[in-house]
Nucleic acid binder design. Sequence first.
DNA 1: TTCCATGAGCGAACACCGTTCTATCAGCAA
DNA 2: TTGCTGATAGAACGGTGTTCGCTCATGGAA
Lengths: 238, 238
Amino acid sequence: MTEAIPTPPWQTPRKPPPRQPLSQELIVRAALRVLDAEGLDGLSMRRLAQELETGPASLYAHVANKDELLDLVYDMVLSEVEIPEPDPDRWAEQVKEYLRSLRKVFRSHRDLARVSLSRIPLGPNGVVGMERTMALLRAGGLPDDIAAYAGDLVTSFVTTETLDDAFPTGDTDTGTVQAYVAQIRDYLTSLPPQRFPHLVQMAGPITSLDSERRFELGMEIIVRGLSTYARPGGARPQ
Amino acid sequence: MTEAIPTPPWQTPRKPPPRQPLSQELIVRAALRVLDAEGLDGLSMRRLAQELETGPASLYAHVANKDELLDLVYDMVLSEVEIPEPDPDRWAEQVKEYLRSLRKVFRSHRDLARVSLSRIPLGPNGVVGMERTMALLRAGGLPDDIAAYAGDLVTSFVTTETLDDAFPTGDTDTGTVQAYVAQIRDYLTSLPPQRFPHLVQMAGPITSLDSERRFELGMEIIVRGLSTYARPGGARPQ
DNA sequence: TTCCATGAGCGAACACCGTTCTATCAGCAA
DNA sequence: TTGCTGATAGAACGGTGTTCGCTCATGGAA
């Protein structure tokens, strides 16, 4: 390390910090960092500017507004999703592999499901993902209109199923969630049985499914439903 | 009706407007009015107070916070949902009737789908709805754990499918939406066909489904998937 | 080499937001 | 009539996304 020499007073201090300049990519990466650490509610333009050691107004030179920024964050994360190369013999299992990967990515970035809500992923990574998804769904012999809709359906499914999931390593620990669920179960069982016979009987099943099994069950239901639309021949029309 | 008599001028006008005092129900009804008229983004505590000709602070005497207020609004609206009395022979069709009613209610109140997101309807109307839903789903012979999850699944389905739907009589007219969809289709068809063969081929199917047919198709997929779990005997275990 | 246009950087401000503090005031029990 | 309690509401607090307008470095043209 070279010794830090105090600048002579007569020399006007040029470029005090040789910080690398802002760029869109730098901003998006920082936004994802803040999102992971503090969630969507913690991600404000001011907080993001602070993370980059600048002012909020500076961000608007590289990003139109917060909504566009979230579009970019979403697209960046989509690059982490793995979509299998289609093998028609393993169609159902491959669709599930795809959905599990999607879920894993959504759960590994806090509040990402909220970000993805009502956002159509048309960024560079988004279209690549769509292309591969369509390839996979068609390989199962789904007609084009069914496959097109199925892409949306499964994405929406993963999104909603991931919405309330706690951040895996977050501090919204499982204890709090369990206590809340137990409260609901107690409430349901305490209802008058003559007016709410089904709820009282089903208080158990309603409150006992953990997020893992919910997801697997939902996937199975949707995949079974989709399978009924598959042409018998598979990918190629006989 | 008794004739309205003008107040004599020498009588000091006490209680200039005989406004009825605030109450929780009055506030919730007003909130629904503002929501219908101006959407969720337009519903602020200040705007709501203005609607009731008072100040924002006054609302907090009857409602803990905005979140609880939205809980109450959501529950109020749930009373409009119609859930058929179970007839095991018509199970699949009845489930669809229920979902169509749910969709109709969600679409008839602007941004209600957004309000319902990650909100568990446990208010007075919510539990009644849950009870009837469980009755209906079980009547098809679904095992309890499947029926319990299916209730969540179909609600989430209707919610996400209704999220981006324009308000039926709103000013986000179909023209704007159609233009946006056309833009997407043009973009997809303009992609390099060697790298995006499926997207180019499916640009049509992807962008041609209107919300009505999307909904009907999604329902059918889910109902078919659920049917595969039904016990052959129907409601009663043989 | 000089000049100037361009655009990034950024402090300050605007118009909002949900919520709380605090003071006032009406209605009612004693 | 007094005293208390709870509804009412103005003002303020600490936040939000975004814009205004100024400074200043940089790069291309002359």
